[in-house]
Design a binder for these strands. Structure first.
Lengths: 218, 218
DNA sequence: GTCTATATGAAGATAGAC
DNA sequence: GTCTATCTTCATATAGAC
């Protein structure tokens, strides 16, 4: 376990040109690890789910930990990809925030993002590099993107940061959005959120944000 | 939002009158489970840490899952106890919020609360009752207590909820507080937060809150 | 590279003496 | 109730044939 903990975020780069078999193994591993956690998952489950033999798994990934790392890296990448689709245009602040909010929550509350969050958070004390990678390619990217959006709003004189910087204000906004909804999904995995609940919470966050930071309360 | 909150979970009740040996086992189990997670922990570790034999463990807790449940229940109880110490007095809103914020963060960012959060979140899909118990005795209690504080502020005409209810506004406040700090601690377990960072973030949350909800911007 | 079969160790849980 | 010793199962990982 220890030798796998990589210092200084020197993450082993995943060979992106996976052979089809390796990709099959990885896909199965994603499903199994995100469903059962690192320790709960067994190489047998992965092998069986992939429909390959044990030694095929080990031919492509030297051990369970490496395979786990590849899973998290792969998921982080696809996570980031979704986040980049978030757009923002100046003009109608409330409507822009609403779009931003829903785009963000679609990702943050998705089953796969929640599963990734669970497993990364759980294993972070034993695999610090995982925690760092997740933060840097997930929440940090979100903050940056939302921050850029708010910079546009600032340039267009739609908001007034009142001394904070754009990234801090971005964090305030996503924090209000995520908060209760995220926690509800995490602690009640068996109870999906109703759309009306999400919409209601989005409006609370937006109206709070507007009263704090909008230049004119529209 | 209300329909989300689960009342009256059918949680297995823990026998609170533990014998000294049972308490010794439980204390060891708390340490081991919160350090290694459910699957990562072994009954051998617990046995060894408690300085008892295997069959002593099984004499008091019928199996690993029961023991785990007792651990989470016991930790939740002590968690709630701390939360109840949070007080609020009307008069100076900013100062009251600051005290509330620090009292909350002292608990939420403590090593034991983070460890409990990790393990509960990780296992919630397999043990839904754990997630429910955690939510009801942790975050829900916080929200209620903060909500009561804000009701006082409302009665004293210090804040204006602008259509939201007190518990929603309470949630907005703790969400802003927790947000980035909580995530940082979760994803960077090896990197303790500096007091200055916490203080800075508290001020951001407070000033945002004040601009949204205070009746007169003091 | 991929398979079947297996080595090796460790896990959860129990038997039986005291 | 508590211990030592052990049963059984199942985990990760490898050997050796094709």
């Amino acid at each position: 376990m220890k030798d796998l903990i990589l210092q200084n975020d020197n993450l082993p780069r995943l060979d992106l040109n996976l052979t089809p078999k390796a990709q099959t193994v990885l896909n199965a591993a994603i499903k199994i690890f995100l469903t059962h956690g690192f320790n709960g998952a067994t190489t047998d489950m992965i092998q069986r789910s992939a429909g390959v033999s044990k030694s095929t798994v080990y031919a492509h990934f030297s051990n369970k930990e490496r395979l786990f790392l590849a899973v998290v890296q792969s998921e982080c990448a696809s996570f980031t990809k979704s986040i980049h689709s978030i757009e923002f245009t100046a003009g109608n602040l409330t409507e822009s925030l609403r779009k931003l909010a829903h785009a963000y929550l679609d990702v943050a509350l998705s089953d796969s993002a929640l599963a990734l969050y669970r497993v990364v958070i759980a294993e972070a004390p034993r695999f610090p590099a995982l925690g760092h990678m997740f933060y840097n390619t997930g929440p940090y990217v979100v903050k940056t993107i939302v921050g850029k959006s708010f910079q546009k709003a600032l340039d267009a004189n739609e908001i007034d940061l009142n001394g904070a910087d754009v990234n801090e204000v971005a964090e305030v906004f996503v924090a209000m959005l995520r908060s209760e909804l995220h926690l509800q999904r995490l602690t009640h995995p068996d109870k999906p959120l109703k759309k009306s609940v999400i919409d209601h919470w989005v409006e609370i966050a937006i109206s709070s944000f507007i009263r704090s930071y909008a230049t004119d309360n529209e």
